[in-house]
Amino acid sequence: MFVYVAHRLFASHDRALAADLAERVAARVGADRVFLPFCDSDEENLVAEVKGRRLFEMDRERLGYMDAMVAVLHGPSLDDGVCLEIGYAAAAGIPVTVLTTDFQTYSLTEAGPHLAFPDPLLQAVATRIVRVTNLGPPTSHPSRFTDFQARNVAQTNTALDAAVDALLDLPDHGPRLVGTAPDVGAPVYVEASPYTAWGRDHLAEACVEAGHTVRVPQRFTASDPVAGALADLTAVCSAARLIADVSGPETPPGTALLVGAAMASDVRIAAFQPRTTFTHAHGREPNWRNLMIQYAAEAHLDNGDAVLSWLAA
């Protein structure tokens, strides 16, 4: 079993948590059977002509021969790179264990079914979800702050051990959602951003005006959000193209997941982002989005004319 550890990696505590998880997995399957991004790509010291693209290529290579994935997702703001990686695994038939210590659940309406994550796609594609929501037992330490820290560490240790156990109990590969590149006459799937006005359909309208059949998300309006999410995933993997509105502080989690699924399915991808913001890191070119999203997309579109040009290409 070759295991890919997917995790947020932009802060030291996130990297430390992932390293702890990877070490526990390695103790069970062997260190050479575990890939830990940032660590194994030597991101801080890597020198490349286009560093972001090189990091993307290295991570995608590992995604291509993984047997299982364990992904860490915490809180309502889910890392878009991790969500992309989960989507890639889902489309490739790779089983995924998702670990969270978030004590909240989510619903699309006040009385709707509760979900482990804000977007039902995560619930739909996870093979196992490990949720450890409670602090560890109180300690006898006189400082309430040290006691609180110890209770959080205990919760983390419980969660990591449970995730490793779930990972090793995963089923074998499932079927790929598609085996070959979709037909050029297949529909265009248009994924809007929840950070823009609800009901905004200018991207779908542009596709229809250009003569394309269009598919749009079902999961936010379906009576069964998980069933709607699976329908969205299947539609993306059989589409000719994906136009994903990646607007927002980061790419919305479901959108990022669908980008990963499209990447695994050889679907042409364009990222729409009319207002661009850049991230900067030492030794790396400025990136206009998470580098996994940026380099998965063949085109970066910022206006309607750019959308029409890409559709005509």
Rank of each mutant, 00 (worst) to 15 (best):
residue 1 M to R: 14
residue 1 M to W: 04
residue 3 V to G: 07
residue 5 V to H: 04
residue 9 L to N: 14
residue 10 F to H: 13
residue 12 S to A: 15
residue 15 R to D: 00
residue 16 A to H: 11
residue 16 A to S: 12
residue 17 L to D: 00
residue 18 A to H: 08
residue 19 A to C: 01
residue 20 D to E: 15
residue 27 A to T: 05
residue 27 A to F: 04
residue 28 R to L: 03
residue 29 V to Q: 05
residue 29 V to L: 06
residue 33 R to D: 07
residue 35 F to T: 02
residue 37 P to N: 09
residue 38 F to A: 14
residue 40 D to T: 14
residue 40 D to Y: 13
residue 43 E to K: 10
residue 45 N to H: 14
residue 49 E to S: 13
residue 50 V to Q: 13
residue 51 K to F: 08
residue 52 G to W: 03
residue 59 D to P: 00
residue 62 R to I: 01
residue 63 L to D: 01
residue 64 G to S: 15
residue 65 Y to W: 15
residue 66 M to K: 06
residue 66 M to F: 07
residue 67 D to C: 13
residue 71 A to Y: 12
residue 74 H to P: 00
residue 74 H to D: 14
residue 77 S to Y: 09
residue 81 G to K: 10
residue 82 V to N: 01
residue 83 C to V: 05
residue 86 I to C: 14
residue 92 A to N: 05
residue 97 T to N: 06
residue 98 V to P: 02
residue 99 L to K: 11
residue 100 T to V: 07
residue 100 T to E: 03
residue 104 Q to M: 09
residue 119 D to Q: 04
residue 119 D to C: 04
residue 126 A to D: 08
residue 134 N to V: 02
residue 135 L to M: 09
residue 142 P to V: 10
residue 145 F to A: 07
residue 145 F to C: 00
residue 151 R to G: 04
residue 152 N to R: 13
residue 152 N to H: 13
residue 152 N to Q: 13
residue 153 V to H: 05
residue 155 Q to T: 01
residue 157 N to M: 11
residue 157 N to H: 14
residue 157 N to A: 15
residue 160 L to F: 09
residue 161 D to K: 13
residue 166 A to W: 09
residue 168 L to S: 07
residue 168 L to F: 10
residue 169 D to P: 00
residue 170 L to S: 10
residue 172 D to Y: 02
residue 176 R to W: 04
residue 178 V to C: 11
residue 183 D to K: 09
residue 184 V to D: 14
residue 186 A to Y: 06
residue 188 V to Y: 04
residue 191 E to A: 15
residue 191 E to I: 05
residue 192 A to R: 11
residue 198 W to F: 10
residue 199 G to W: 11
residue 200 R to N: 14
residue 200 R to H: 05
residue 202 H to T: 12
residue 204 A to S: 15
residue 209 E to N: 13
residue 215 R to V: 14
residue 215 R to Y: 06
residue 217 P to Y: 08
residue 218 Q to M: 12
residue 219 R to F: 08
residue 223 S to Q: 09
residue 223 S to R: 11
residue 228 G to N: 05
residue 234 T to Q: 13
residue 234 T to S: 11
residue 235 A to R: 02
residue 241 R to C: 01
residue 242 L to G: 02
residue 242 L to K: 03
residue 246 V to M: 05
residue 247 S to F: 09
residue 248 G to A: 07
residue 249 P to D: 11
residue 251 T to W: 03
residue 256 A to N: 02
residue 259 V to H: 00
residue 259 V to G: 01
residue 265 S to C: 06
residue 267 V to S: 03
residue 270 A to D: 06
residue 273 Q to K: 15
residue 274 P to V: 05
residue 275 R to D: 11
residue 276 T to K: 10
residue 279 T to V: 05
residue 283 G to I: 13
residue 283 G to F: 07
residue 285 E to H: 04
residue 287 N to I: 01
residue 289 R to D: 14
residue 289 R to P: 00
residue 293 I to A: 03
residue 293 I to G: 03
residue 293 I to S: 01
residue 293 I to R: 05
residue 295 Y to V: 02
residue 298 E to K: 06
residue 298 E to P: 00
residue 300 H to K: 10
residue 304 G to K: 06
residue 311 L to D: 01
residue 311 L to T: 06
